[in-house]
């Protein structure tokens, strides 16, 4: 791919990001941060390439450490987002609210 092609994708993606993020409801801004955290760990792709290939031992170990870090983020980020999103509930009609106090 040429540099200009890549740059074009990047610039377009910035615009997509701009409009998509403005459409996120403010109530979900914390889950937004958690999920962006998880997806920015797509950097694991680079870490995998580094650790998968024979060549430089140092590079392989750097890659493996980066894989561990990105994995913390991927699993942690998606799991905590899922956990938060599960808490958002609509008003229950006529159903008795469960008086469960965890505070």
């Amino acid at each position: 791919m040429t540099f200009i092609a890549i740059l074009s994708i990047f610039v377009m993606a910035c615009f997509v990001g701009y409009y998509v993020v403005w459409s996120v409801t403010p109530a979900l801004h914390t889950p937004l941060m958690a999920v962006t955290n998880a997806i920015s760990s797509v950097i694991i792709v680079g870490a995998l390439i580094a650790s998968a290939e024979a060549g430089s031992v140092v590079s392989k170990w750097l890659g493996l450490i980066a894989v561990v870090m990105a994995s913390v983020n991927i699993f942690g980020g998606f799991a905590v987002t899922e956990r938060m999103l599960a808490m958002y509930k609509k008003k229950e009609r006529s159903a008795a609210p469960a008086p469960k106090d965890r505070g």
Partner: peptide, 30 residues
């Protein structure tokens, strides 16, 4: 996000570039 995007440029990886731009925009807007 911008860090991931820069790495995406190095690796010519569209997934990383798109993600980087999304996350970068998200953080900037917030």
């Amino acid at each position: 996000g911008w860090a991931a995007a820069a790495m995406g440029f190095t690796l010519h990886n569209t997934a990383m570039i798109i993600t980087g731009a999304l996350v970068g925009a998200s953080g900037a807007i917030l």
